[in-house]
């Protein structure tokens, strides 16, 4: 079996590209400001967004931009989330560690984001998706290898669609490549072959 891409979204260097077409772009905006302006451009209201850490915000943005182009009526458990990520939650880990090093009281609101899989939780909550979750850490992104994992989730019958790809955040560096894929299988009842 193989998979086929339904939609894609890339976010890097202040530009959101959806299905190959630039959707939103700003120059010289620091990452935290970009996360705000790109959210505003989406024109949705989701106050929880502002509680998230940068990794979750980026993953959330990418998912929202990607889903905007597709109005597939997903059932609540047919979308598997499968993410590759490079530097785990180290960006928020450092914040938590800094509080410890400074002897300041640590914050549960920070600590909860010291797990990289939280971004899948945020996406699942927003979309009411109860499907499979998988997060793999690796130093870089390779679409073919990701497609292999997505293919496995779909071909093993665990999901009809797989959403995911690469989300990586560390300090002011960020990169996102998300894909929504489905099976490229054709269901047949041919008996003459």
């Amino acid at each position: 079996m193989a998979i086929q891409v339904l939609s894609s979204c890339s976010i890097e260097n202040g530009t959101v590209v959806v299905n190959g077409t630039p959707e939103y772009s700003v120059e010289n905006e620091v990452f935290s400001d970009f996360l705000k302006s790109a959210y505003r451009h989406l024109d949705i209201s989701y106050p929880k967004y502002f509680k998230m850490d940068k990794l979750c915000q980026l993953a959330f943005l990418g998912t929202e931009y990607l889903l905007k182009t597709n109005d597939i009526p997903f059932t609540d458990d047919e979308v598997a989330l499968c993410f590759f990520n490079g530097r785990s939650s180290l960006d928020t880990d450092s914040k938590h560690q800094q509080l410890i090093n400074d002897g300041t009281k640590v914050s549960p609101a920070v600590f909860v984001y010291t797990l990289p899989n939280i971004m899948m939780g945020e996406i699942a909550i927003k979309n009411k998706w109860y499907g499979e979750n998988l997060l793999i850490l690796r130093p870089d992104f390779n679409f073919e290898e990701w497609a292999l994992e997505a293919d496995l989730l779909i071909s093993s019958g665990k999901a009809t669609y797989c959403l995911g790809g690469w989300v990586d955040v560390f300090q002011d560096n960020y990169q996102l490549h998300l894909y929504l894929v489905e099976a490229a299988e054709i269901k047949m009842k041919l008996t003459s072959i």
Binding site: L6, S7, G20, T21, T69, N70
Partner: peptide, 10 residues
């Protein structure tokens, strides 16, 4: 779905 969404395969 792809065409209605304006997705290109190029």
């Amino acid at each position: 779905n792809q065409l209605r969404s304006g997705v290109t395969g190029i």
